[in-house]
Write a protein that binds this DNA or RNA. Sequence first.
DNA 1: CGAAATTTCGGAACGCGTTCTGAAATTAGC
DNA 2: GCTAATTTCAGAACGCGTTCCGAAATTTCG
Lengths: 239, 239
Amino acid sequence: MSRSTEPHRRVGRPPVTSRAQILTAARGLIDEVGWEKLTIRRLASEIGVGATTLYHHVRDKEELLFLLIYEYAEQIPHPELPSEPRERIITAAVALHDGLAAWPWAAEVLTTDGFIARLGDSFLWLVETILAGAVSAGCPPEQSVQIFRSIWYYTAGEIVVRAHTRHRKMNEQDPTHLNAYFGNADGPLRHPHLAAIADRWATLAGQDTFAQGLRAFVDGLLVQSLTKKTSGAPNSESN
Amino acid sequence: MSRSTEPHRRVGRPPVTSRAQILTAARGLIDEVGWEKLTIRRLASEIGVGATTLYHHVRDKEELLFLLIYEYAEQIPHPELPSEPRERIITAAVALHDGLAAWPWAAEVLTTDGFIARLGDSFLWLVETILAGAVSAGCPPEQSVQIFRSIWYYTAGEIVVRAHTRHRKMNEQDPTHLNAYFGNADGPLRHPHLAAIADRWATLAGQDTFAQGLRAFVDGLLVQSLTKKTSGAPNSESN
DNA sequence: CGAAATTTCGGAACGCGTTCTGAAATTAGC
DNA sequence: GCTAATTTCAGAACGCGTTCCGAAATTTCG
């Protein structure tokens, strides 16, 4: 209707802040004090408005965090894609992972309902790339979606688990750590392999094996999809 | 020290409740009103004690939920294991997944720090089985741990994402659903594969493909591990 | 100019998990 | 028996996210 032609000042009390200002202030506050200390009340007083005022510009805190990721994500440049479909999938999935893992609070929002669907063009392009890669590799569209979902579970799980893992220095000095649990009384008897590796567990768990696991996963998924094709008859398995 | 020989009544004010009673009451409350409505205050008043009293028997709410899972988990019977190592891994991982996914609040605790290490014998036995399966298949212990970690990321991710996905009936009636996001103006231009499958996305996302994806993952992980053996030289990849 | 409609603001309040602190209830020692 | 030591209890309070609702500030209409 009335667009730029008519600078119709809107009826009602004029807003004292805006979603843009809130997001900017939130970014600043996160840079200052860290995202754990970002609270609605603190953010509001930083802007100089009442706490409840923010709820007229943002549905809730979860949406606030999502919008922060959303805005940043749109600025991420698209990675160059290799020619081979399988490598394209991996490149896109790694970009998706790294893009999200870059923000420590991503884990808070990652698993919310419909997160993928709410992603912006930049991240949707990565989803599209994964789907396209699977299709290029010979998978039917339905299975391509399932391949993406599997990759997404793996990706989200890695980010969330690692985000919740305290990155204390892997000094073996901490007796309350893994060894204390794994190495209980009859551990070596009941769980020999676990006991054998218990003292190295913390070190191994600290390594970043996302990309390596992803490669294995994509290989397995493509092999599985291309082997049984679109066999309508279910396997001998439960699902 | 003084055990059953001496019924030494302990010094100090006698406790009015116990961790066992708290856990029992928590289970009852969850059965009655659902785990979302389980609050510290409500649980305390259910028992008939002050809210803060619970904190002398349980560190925090997270530990309370963890203990609930822990106790249940110990009662789970061990699944029968197939003979083939690969199938043993899958059987154990599915049991781990199903055992955790059985409690809707598992997602709240799943990703907390050191969750796996704090698991009880019953679940640790599943971890042990996965490790043993990988070793039996020919993987060195270190890579077996990485294989388990990859499986765990996938498993935890699946549970957490699905737990946070509202299971609304997949009626296409809801215009605020996926299509509304995926099918935006120039969606078909920018994301053709996404647009092509958008209307079927919700249905596909509702399917349980955990076991299928797991099979692909395990296959890929074993192939990867056995192919490059314990090559000390890193790949051409970043990691 | 004044009343009505409209839109936003923000203080009060709720329930939450959690911490602090002093009171209460018990045993041990004199 | 009285006091001290010990252990637990629980009310008060804090900060949090969030909701409710009346007040405030603007435009529109008569």
